[in-house]
């Protein structure tokens, strides 16, 4: 019994070291969304493009789609842009966007250069709506199901690997639910 007390520190330390080892594999800067499986927040945003569509919560129902939060001043957004282009043009995924705290002319120039993958773009000039979405950095990307619920969130640029492993399978299964 008395001996056990002397072994206790070692035991506790081993457990601790195990936690550290697991901790090394985690990225502590990723914050999970509080809105997963919750309906998208109520909002209406004016269109970014004069002849384009704005974005409102009502329009996020009826089919599985992505909502991407982007800005022309955001460097990682450039990285994910071709990926989003491919998703929209080749894989036929509907991608809508919230343009976060951007000058409209900058955003438009940016889309003219890199192409416009978005079916609709709402301009969130003061970032207020984005707060309702729980956005804490750009880019962020949400997968919305047909009932208008947030099912998945990617923080940071959407990479091809992420698309293959999570986004496309999730979209498929959500669409399957819809048909089934």
């Amino acid at each position: 019994m008395r001996r056990l007390i002397y072994i206790l520190p070692l035991g506790l330390f081993v457990v601790l070291a195990g936690y550290f080892a697991v901790g090394l594999t985690r990225d502590p800067s990723v914050v999970p969304s509080a809105l997963i499986d919750k309906p998208v927040p109520e909002f209406t945003l004016p269109p970014l493009l004069k002849d384009g569509q704005g974005l409102a919560s009502a329009e996020l129902k009826g089919k599985v789609q992505l909502v991407n939060v982007f800005a022309s001043w955001c460097v990682p957004c450039r990285v994910e842009h071709p990926v989003l282009m491919r998703l929209a043009k080749e894989q036929g995924v509907t991608v809508k966007a919230i343009n976060y705290k951007d000058k409209p002319e900058d955003a438009i120039r940016w889309l003219n250069q890199g192409g416009n993958p978005y079916a609709a773009i709402g301009a969130d000039q003061d970032g207020r709506v984005s707060i309702d979405w729980g956005v804490y950095g750009v880019p962020e990307t949400y997968v919305i199901d047909a009932e208008g619920r947030i099912r998945y969130k990617v923080v940071g640029p959407v990479m091809p690997d992420e698309v293959e492993r999570h986004i496309l399978p999730l979209i498929k299964s959500l669409q399957g639910d819809l048909q089934g």
Binding site: V31, P32, S33, A34, L35, P41, D132, W133, G134, Y136
Partner: peptide, 8 residues
């Protein structure tokens, strides 16, 4: 605020 960003 918690409703939007979670307990975090």
């Amino acid at each position: 605020v918690t409703a939007r960003y979670g307990d975090y």
